[in-house]
Every structure is written in structure tokens, then in C-alpha cells.
């Protein structure tokens, strides 16, 4: 079986897929990749299912090697990447030769970068998924010396493809729908919330991210005596000092801080990818507008494969292309997963 050998790993590298829906009643949040759009992009680049597990790298990647020639794709926050010293394009697929060293450095923008592999990472499933859920004690961070089994790359297909870069790595505008506790906040506080620019604080992880307001924090009429209620990723809790805390994939399942609203699922990658210091604004939209935005995002995800383009190749890459053709005899990807 093919393996990914980890020579070196940054402090926040873990195996992630789309998580474990269905365990909310048992206190276990869905978890999964912090940037789900990046999972769809990796799947498009490799012509495989977006449910396959990849490596999520928070802020910093690592040094990797494969036992067999393996297709890879790099998505999410752009990071400095190279193979045996030759730079690699981000948001693109490549063929990684057995024995070559893949180095992935620090993110140049954003937070979470992803390394996808042909066939996916095939560590054993636990409770129906491969995602590490660190808050729940499921799985562990990846460390130097780890070897991860890879699934069989049944799809095959060409590498050297790329997707247009997205703008979700520098903060910006995030859409929010009101919820059952929005009414705890007086009209003028909601208006001020929309008008206030926020800075992504240093405190943030896969459970949640704090945003510091320019100016005063926000107060709810209910104070801090709200009964603990169900929490879902995207919920914006207003914590004791009035700063919003956006709950992310690995959040707890109940909480007692009042929530001013919820970030649309399709805008959550923008929140996850806002690096400390990034500026962000929240804007309320109606339910109808929220549904329309979600529908548009789903359509865009489905259309990713139509946006694939060929990387402009230099002679170094052409060597890869030829060797791959020699092995498989095909370059046209076909899609047996969907």
C-alpha cells in the first residue's frame, strides 16, 4: 500500500475530511475541514470524491515523501511549496515522484492549507470518518515520523491542472442570518454590529475564532444568564467582554453565551481563513438571500471542474507529465466517484 511519509510537520497538521454529521445529540460536533471549499477544490483538481481525507495544515506545512508516484493537489491558504527545491504552484495538482521531498512552508495568506493525495488518506475510520477531532480526543496532530496509508488511486487522470485563486484569504465581508437569540440584542446594537469593522484576534483555532471590534463590545439585553442551548458551526457568540466569537467546525455542541446570528455556511471558509490581523465585517441578510447565496455556492462547487486549467509548464514539469503518461497511458481524467 502506498504511504505518505512525514519527515517534518508544523504545529497544526491533522487528517481531515468532511467530518461526522449525526452525533450532535451525543455532544460531538461534526468537525471536519475548517475550509470545506478547499476540500471541494482538491477533489476537483484530482477528479475524485470530496469525501476523501486530506492533510489540513494550520499556518505551516511540513516535509513529506511518498513511497510510490502519487498525484497531489494543494489548496486552501497559499503556502510556499517546492519539490526537491523546485517551486510548486498552489491551487494546482502535481505528480509527486517516489523519493522526492515535498516541502510546504508558511502560509503567505490565510490560515489553512491542504495537501490532497490521489486516493485520499486511508487511515481507519472512527465513528464513520477519518477527521481528527482534537477537542473530543479523536485522532491526533501529525508529527515527524508518522506514516499515513493512502487509498488506491482508482481515478487516475492528469496532473498539472490549476484552479483560479479565490479571495477568501484576507477577511472581507461575511454574511449572517438572524437566529432565535438575535432578538436579545437591541436594534441599535445590531446596527452597530453591522457597521463595526473587526480584527481577527490572535486567539482562534478549529473550535472558534475571536474578532476584536473597533470600539466598544456588544451587549445583549439578556446579559449572561441565558440557558445553555444548542450550538452549530457559524454561530456568533457574544462573549463576556462583548467581542464576537465565531464557532467553527470543532465547536462544543451547547453554549450559554447569547448569539447575535450565524455566518452562512458558504461564508465560513472566509472566517476560517482570516489570519490574525485580518479585517472583517458582518452583514445581516434575510433567510431568502441566505438560501440564494447557499444555492449559488453549491452550484459554483459543482462547476469547479469546468474551471480547471492547465498550468503553464516549464521544462521541469514536462518531465513529470511525460513520466506520468508513460505509466498510465492516459491523461484525460475520468470521474468514477460522482
Amino acid at each position: 500500500m502506498s504511504r505518505l511519509i512525514v519527515h517534518d510537520a508544523g504545529p497544526g497538521v491533522s487528517v481531515q475530511d468532511l467530518g461526522r454529521p449525526g452525533y450532535l445529540a451525543y455532544g460531538l460536533s461534526r468537525g471536519g475541514a475548517a475550509d470545506r471549499l478547499a476540500m471541494a477544490e482538491g477533489a476537483a483538481l484530482l477528479h475524485q470524491s470530496e469525501g476523501l481525507a486530506a492533510l489540513e495544515m494550520a499556518g505551516m506545512g511540513g516535509t513529506f515523501e511518498v513511497g510510490h508516484d502519487t498525484r497531489i493537489a494543494l489548496t486552501g491558504a497559499p503556502m510556499r511549496a517546492s519539490v526537491d527545491g523546485a517551486p510548486l504552484a498552489w491551487n494546482a495538482s502535481h505528480l509527486l515522484h517516489a523519493g522526492s521531498r515535498l516541502s510546504i512552508g508558511a502560509a503567505t495568506r490565510g490560515v489553512y492549507g491542504y495537501l490532497h493525495l490521489g486516493g485520499g488518506i486511508a487511515t481507519p475510520e472512527r465513528l464513520g470518518a477519518r477527521s481528527a477531532h482534537l477537542a473530543a480526543g479523536l485522532g491526533a496532530l501529525i508529527a515527524a515520523g508518522d506514516e499515513l496509508p493512502l487509498g488506491e488511486d482508482r481515478t487516475g487522470g492528469e496532473t498539472g491542472l490549476c484552479l483560479p485563486t479565490d479571495d477568501r484569504f484576507e477577511g472581507g465581508a461575511v454574511r449572517v442570518v438572524p437566529g432565535f437569540q438575535t432578538g436579545f440584542f437591541p436594534d441599535e446594537e445590531r446596527a452597530r454590529f453591522e457597521a463595526t469593522p473587526f480584527t481577527r484576534a490572535a486567539r482562534g483555532n478549529r473550535m472558534g475564532v475571536r474578532f476584536d471590534p473597533d470600539g466598544e463590545g456588544f451587549a445583549s439585553a439578556a446579559g449572561l444568564s441565558v440557558l445553555s442551548e444548542v450550538i452549530v458551526p457559524g454561530d456568533i457568540q457574544i462573549t463576556g467582554d462583548g467581542a464576537p466569537f465565531v464557532l467553527m467546525a470543532e465547536c462544543q455542541t451547547t453554549g450559554g453565551y447569547p448569539r447575535i446570528g450565524s455566518v452562512l455556511p458558504c461564508d465560513l471558509p472566509r472566517v476560517a481563513q482570516a489570519q490574525p490581523g485580518a479585517r472583517l465585517r458582518f452583514r445581516f441578510v434575510t433567510e431568502d438571500d441566505g438560501i440564494a447565496a447557499e444555492r449559488a455556492a453549491a452550484t459554483a462547487r459543482k462547476g469547479l471542474r469546468a474551471k480547471l486549467d492547465h498550468l503553464v509548464r516549464d521544462p521541469h514539469d514536462i518531465r513529470d507529465l511525460l513520466s506520468y503518461q508513460f505509466i498510465s497511458g492516459v491523461t484525460a481524467g475520468h470521474d468514477e466517484e460522482t
Binding site: 444548542v230 454561530d235 433567510e287 447557499e294
Partner: peptide, 29 residues
């Protein structure tokens, strides 16, 4: 619907919205 969600004095049980894809039925304060 949003107005209903925001009405703090609605009688229980009360149905409210959680994000875009959740409903919560509350049986008390």
C-alpha cells in the same frame, strides 16, 4: 418568520431559527 424568532415574549413552546438549516423548539426559558 424573523420577527417571530426575535419576539422574546412569544409563548412556549416556541419555534426559533438556528442558522440557515436549523430549527429549535424551546419548551421554557
Amino acid at each position: 418568520e424573523t420577527d417571530q424568532d426575535m419576539r422574546a415574549d412569544a409563548p412556549f413552546p416556541r419555534i426559533g431559527r438556528v442558522g440557515l438549516d436549523g430549527l429549535v423548539v424551546s419548551f421554557g426559558e
